[in-house]
């Protein structure tokens, strides 16, 4: 499986304004519950319909924050390939994601730069939407190799400035 290692973006292939290919996914109760358990989150609003509706006053169980982070990570590294290394992610949760929703993750590159220690970075705005509604906005800073021989994962200490 060397293809996974060879493939992947380099910084010269990325520019501001570029779209990150969208991802669409049909969310089920299983998606929500598996995501909560994968993040060791047993709070009831992520698995118990009755609690979500009658205690929290919302319409169904909903996706937890760590699982949303995992979706954003998967979305971004699908785009960069395995040498892409997340530096920073900021989320703003505006609305919840429920079973039955078709969620779409779509992003745009805002900025491309090489920092003082030679690390290549792309900053992207990614929105998780359901229909016309933006559920979560994410700003991500991802290190991308500056060339075929560069690998951001090799950076440590002061050479890594996320």
């Amino acid at each position: 499986m060397s293809t996974g290692v060879e493939a992947g973006l380099t910084l010269d292939q990325v520019e501001a304004g570029q779209a990150v290919p969208p991802l669409s996914y049909d969310v089920t109760a299983t998606t929500i519950v598996l995501g909560a358990l994968a993040s060791r989150d047993t709070r009831p609003m992520h698995h118990d319909y009755d609690f979500a509706v009658n205690r929290n006053g919302i319409r169904d169980i909903f996706m937890n924050t760590p699982n949303q982070a995992a979706w954003f990570e998967r979305y971004l590294t699908d785009w960069t390939g395995p040498k892409g290394r997340l530096g920073r992610m900021k989320f703003r949760m505006k609305s919840s994601v429920f079973p039955g929703d078709t969620m779409v993750l779509a992003g745009t590159v805002q900025k491309v730069e090489v920092d003082d220690v030679g690390c290549g970075w792309a900053e992207a705005e990614v929105a998780l939407t359901v229909g016309d509604k933006v559920c979560t906005e994410c700003t991500a800073r991802v290190a991308i190799p500056t060339g075929p021989d560069d690998n951001p994962w090799q950076r440590r200490g002061d050479d890594w400035r996320p």
């Binding site: 499986m1 060397s2 998967r74 395995p82």
Partner: peptide, 17 residues
């Protein structure tokens, strides 16, 4: 976790990668 979001990044599935 990877299964919950269908993350196929070879870093997590391919020890050689």
């Amino acid at each position: 976790s990877c299964a919950s979001v269908e993350n196929g990044n070879p870093l997590y599935w391919d020890d050689d990668a």
